[in-house]
Design a protein around this nucleic acid. Structure first.
Lengths: 329, 329
DNA sequence: ATTAAATTTGTAATCGATTACAAGTTATGA
DNA sequence: TCATAACTTGTAATCGATTACAAATTTAAT
């Protein structure tokens, strides 16, 4: 690969002029510009991003941290982030942390090293201490999961309200024994969805039965199966299940079918996220639709604003209850 | 962020010595090493990857190109790539091309710009001309999809054999009208799987009926539904369907259920890939299991070998037919 | 004690760009 | 025509590391 001096030499100009042509910054005569452009073409020159970034200390690269690429919830968000970033001349660097502090550190250090201009974190298990510390010096946005009262700007939905509406929908259908398949309540979204569940039950004077509340360690299908298996062992079985993710809900669906019961007649199921697969199950899944693409776009916009020095505000987006066959056959 | 000269000054040594401590290359006395390490700790110094890479022209970053993050097929491969990379001191940069030449170029240019040390491509729609040209100068590996007789090393499975076995399985169960839901045969894997399908039918003296072969433009669920809808309109309906991806097969399953027919009694279904969802459908999906994790590991190993200058050979990994409920109720 | 060999440390060039400032060139107006 | 303003171009410093090579120091051998 040719470098800028070779181009300058071939064009018979200085490196400064070549740089000016590349960035069409200050004025260059048409004739010299032509000479330089010819040299560039002849040598097939492309500027070294490394050299440039070292000098300008910007990379036009955005770090996106996700816990796991296998969770379909993130895919739409990422599409939003990517589209918005590219539109603004940034590229994204997608990094899977597996919720491992070690990996997370490797990636977060990129921001200190000027390898990226900022980061969007979507990992609920992120090391908030480290993130807050970094956020003092560098642009960081939290997407979907966040810290209440923290210093890092975030985009999210109203989890409490969404859960409330999901459960209320079940209650309106006549259900009284409604199970909750939640994840670990160390996560804020889990606590918020739990609050919504509680509020709906209280509002309709239904008791909160601990035996109908199950916590899983992970959001994968298998854990949904596990959860449902336990819930079906309860003396008075639930007639409806609200799971805090579609993956869990689909696992539950599978286990209910397996046990010979019918959805929604014997047990109704509601999920959360509206992942694309939620429409492929049999029956199709009632779920809360998060505006995932828009969330991604918003997060990216916020981050880029933050990178260029603008002040950004927290944003709460609207969600929607999507009623399908798993609650109304 | 402190830089190396500040550390040198604080420790009362030269920058060269600091660099030596950082890379524990040549010998440094215990006492000076101590001084430097103290200074590093005090200033909270972390070396600039940009400066280092510019000098050494290596980044210890690997580019991974996938067409779409929403296809679950890639997730396990990526896990394999990531684990192997990290074990060898490399990090990965995951990039979604959406099979867009423009985006692809942006990312592929990173390799010329020394932002990454090499690339693993998994995009069947990749611009082979550009990729081949790059491969002359830089380490590149193709994973899963590849070019026959090309110059780029690849890791894959025997697609023809896998398809042959899948169809043979259906034939052995007594099926004679077996539909094929294929993707565009401009892709090598599609042509190979088609060959396997043809071979199995021929071997058992069954006719190849064009009306039972459907090509889709994309691999998403919706296209499986579309395909099945068409196939159900055929005069003599198929009694079995072989789809070249699980996502398509799951779409087909959904459409069969929707139309009131039973899987596998009315129509049997076989997929390809063994994505994690394939076990969540009702009934669970018979499918070809690709060793995705291992494929990822292999691709990463090959690339790293290539980066350090070793010669690498093409590798064909073993697959497996996983028989589940969608073919044998 | 003296010299040679081995080890440790420092100086300065280098990677490939950008950019302030200086210098050179052209255009403008009296 | 000449002074001045406006515009082009070039020189050289800079970003933050690594690393030959040189210099200084320590160790070993006589």
């Amino acid at each position: 690969m040719a470098n800028i001096q070779q181009v300058a030499q071939k064009a018979g100009v200085s490196v400064a002029t070549v740089s000016r042509v590349m960035n069409n910054s200050s004025s260059v005569t048409a004739s010299t510009r032509q000479k330089v452009e010819n040299a560039i073409k002849e040598l097939n020159y492309e500027p070294s991003v490394l050299g440039r970034n070292l000098r300008t200390s910007e990379s036009r690269l955005i770090l996106v941290l996700i816990p796991s690429i296998s969770n379909p919830f993130y895919t739409e968000i990422i599409n939003g982030i990517e589209d918005t970033s590219i539109k603004n001349g940034y590229n994204i660097l997608l990094c899977e942390t597996d919720s491992s502090v070690e990996r997370e550190n490797i990636y977060l250090n990129m921001i200190k090293n000027k390898l990226v201009d900022g980061a969007i974190s979507m990992d609920p298990a992120v090391n908030m201490e480290k993130l807050n510390q970094l956020a003092l010096d560098y642009p960081i946005i939290q997407c979907s999961e966040y810290e209440e009262g923290g210093i890092i700007p975030y985009v999210t939905i109203n989890n409490e309200l969404a859960a409330y509406q999901a459960v209320k929908h079940l209650i309106k259908l006549g259900h009284e024994r409604i199970a909750l398949v939640n994840s670990d309540e160390k996560f804020l979204y889990a606590r918020q969805r739990r609050q919504g569940y509680d509020r709906a039950l209280k509002e309709y004077h239904l008791p909160i039965r601990e035996e109908l509340i199950y916590h899983t360690d992970y959001l994968e299908f298998d854990y949904g199966i596990q959860a449902m298996r336990k819930l079906l062992e309860v003396q008075e079985k639930p007639t409806a299940v609200f799971a805090v993710s579609d993956t869990l809900a689909i696992g539950a669906l599978k286990e209910i079918n397996q046990s010979g019961l019918q959805v929604p007649n014997d047990i109704a199921v509601v999920g959360f996220d509206k992942i694309s697969f939620s429409n492929m199950t049999n029956p199709s899944l009632t779920t809360i639709s998060q505006p995932m693409y828009k969330m991604g776009c918003t997060a990216a916009t916020m981050l880029i604003n933050s990178v260029v020095g603008k002040k950004v505000e927290n944003i709460v987006l609207d969600h929607e209850l999507v009623i399908r066959d798993s609650t109304m056959g």
